[in-house]
Nucleic acid binder design. Structure first.
Lengths: 352, 352
DNA sequence: CTGAAAGCGCTTACAG
DNA sequence: CTGAAAGCGCTTACAG
């Protein structure tokens, strides 16, 4: 369906006053204008001159061209953010937190949807590097990711968020994944559960790996068994995979009364698998998720989960990056945020 | 919680081979290199020379500096996308669709979270314009938006998506909001509902206005009454406001058996208001949403809604923008996508 | 405190 | 088909 209207829109030249023109107008040298307009250099020029320049700039509607400045200084005040899937609600608040902090410092954020394939990912990174981004935030890395290696080799400032690299080659901001899963299991334990299964995330991702570790630790703390059948690893973080993995888990570990899922999408998949077998949640099987992503309070039953504070993670990641882009040769830092439990209705005491 | 490691990361200079260096290496003039590397100009240079240049470029790892090119050509191959709230799941697929099409043509996308306040919005637009974006996609406009006026005055190419302007001053891609709401009401009518209320969106937005128009038309088609009490307008598209507005609607229009909501968030708010009054959905009151945003199939009851194809809207918006950025003085176009009904479990025949 | 000069890395009329 | 030149709009040593 298309309607048209024959109105053409001639594009007018944008406000064309540049630094030179402004200098001519005020009667000073361009370099003086440049100094007067740079807060860190304004003290180098006489107050009255600086004032005249500022006033004229406003009157003429002068707007500095960041492209030219970027070419000259080799800095772009542009930051790239790579997410694995922009459609995944978990990343929105992360992006939002990053843009908030960076924006306040004059940086613009380019968000790139990396997708899951390796080739396009690398191409995107190269594209961002070609654009001379001053830094990169990666929300995508696996535990041993060649992308990170690549960025480091290119000499770009990198900060990892949500998922971290195993070898501490870059600063990162993550939720305490081990602790988060321990809290989840502890919650189930307190409710009375003893036979608990784990819907693990991909072991190639720090979140999948560490949450599994947290699961094993918490179980061990209580002297509970973790037979191999108690853990099934999902190939990816999505609902369909969660459903399939849960089917396998129920099959292999029939006595279970609760499932600790490595993330919310997986937990939602578990809902489906449970329903398909006529099992009720939480009456027959309790389910706890991870991330507290938007809307999981509205599903049925409202999902008990672990809140990880993605917006704060984004903010901290931005601050870390700012630090590196501004200062010089800083140490690698890891920021680990403490998560908390959100107790809703998908968990309850086991029957009987 | 923070741990540190005392590893410093010296930033290496990135691959420093520029066009001049490459020219020297091959033994030709820089302008020849420039031509050989530009697909649209390659035919101007001898094949063997061009080949030597291409080979050398690859060997030396030459990567053209888009910042320099941008300064020279006054084009940035950068496009800005303004969304009202990046955290709103409806916008993710739109953004994703835009980036997909634009990325294939070598454009990078800057996503800006506009927020709801006027000042910051304008500042963001100015920021993007200062960065010399080649075009802007606005997913934020009200029916008569000064932001659009501003963009037009600045001479930037603009395309509207999801929400359109009343006066056709820019090309746009929207869902057929009138038709979508008619389909929703028709569905309720077929189910047997006769007393239907409308949870309207803000009348300052095209979606709010047109869906309301669609509601009124559909009711009139069937000779059904639409007393003033049958429509309540939400001040914004969010759950809490949906809950409040529904409370008012139930109060003012007690006989109703179904609610047609202007969007899914509002519908989800209606769920809460209904539950608060002990009314069951759909047994007591049917609810239909709009947008089919992620996860509404998982809420309880799974939401019957109108699918608007946001990813396609994004793609089309990108294509429209591409057209304008490339061609010259094109007519204003409106693309209107046909939505469809997704029948799930929040609607059913009225009782009795 | 201010100016003159050089240059960031490209592209594109203009010659030949 | 190729080269030489100019210039996009800034910033920053270098003088004075």
């Amino acid at each position: 369906m298309q309607r048209q209207r024959m109105t053409s829109s001639p594009i007018e030249p944008r406000s064309r006053v540049n630094l030179r023109r402004l200098a001519d107008e005020v009667g000073v040298h361009p370099s003086t204008v440049s100094r007067a307009l740079d807060p860190t250099k304004r003290h180098l020029v006489a107050d009255d001159v600086a004032d005249r320049i500022t006033t004229a700039a406003r009157q003429l509607g002068y707007r500095p061209n960041p492209v030219a400045a970027s070419l000259r200084t080799r800095r772009s005040t542009l930051v790239g953010v790579l997410v694995p899937d922009i459609t995944n609600p978990v990343f929105s608040p992360i992006i939002s937190g990053i843009a908030e902090i960076l924006g306040a410092e004059g940086y613009s954020t380019i968000v790139a949807d990396a997708g899951t394939e390796f080739g396009p990912r690398m191409a995107l990174i190269d594209e961002l590097i070609a654009r001379r981004v001053d830094g990169l935030v990666l929300a995508t890395v696996s535990r041993d990711d060649p992308m990170l290696e690549h960025c480091l080799a290119e000499g770009v400032h990198v900060v990892l968020v949500n998922r971290a690299d195993d070898s501490d080659r870059a600063s990162s901001v993550v939720s305490d994944d081990v602790a988060g899963m321990r809290v989840a299991v502890e919650h189930l334990y307190q409710l009375g559960h003893r036979v608990i299964g784990h819907l693990a995330g991909p072991s190639t991702l720090s979140t999948g790996h560490l949450r599994r570790v947290g699961f094993e630790q918490a179980m061990q703390d209580h002297g509970l068994a973790v037979p191999p059948a108690a853990i099934v690893e999902a190939a990816s973080y999505d609902r369909d995979e969660g459903e399939r993995a849960t089917a396998r888990l129920l099959q292999a570990y029939p006595g279970l009364t609760a499932i600790a899922a490595a993330n919310d999408l997986l937990a939602l998949g578990a809902y489906k698998a449970l329903a398909a077998r006529g099992l009720r949640c939480p009456a027959d099987v309790s389910v706890v998720g991870h991330n507290d992503m938007p809307l999981v309070d509205m599903v049925e039953p409202p999902l008990t989960t672990i809140r990880i504070g993605p917006r704060d993670m984004g903010r901290d990641a931005a601050r870390l990056l700012l630090e590196r882009m501004t200062g010089s040769a800083l140490p690698i830092r890891r920021i680990v945020l403490a998560p908390d439990l959100v107790f809703r209705a998908s968990t309850a005491a086991p029957r009987g």
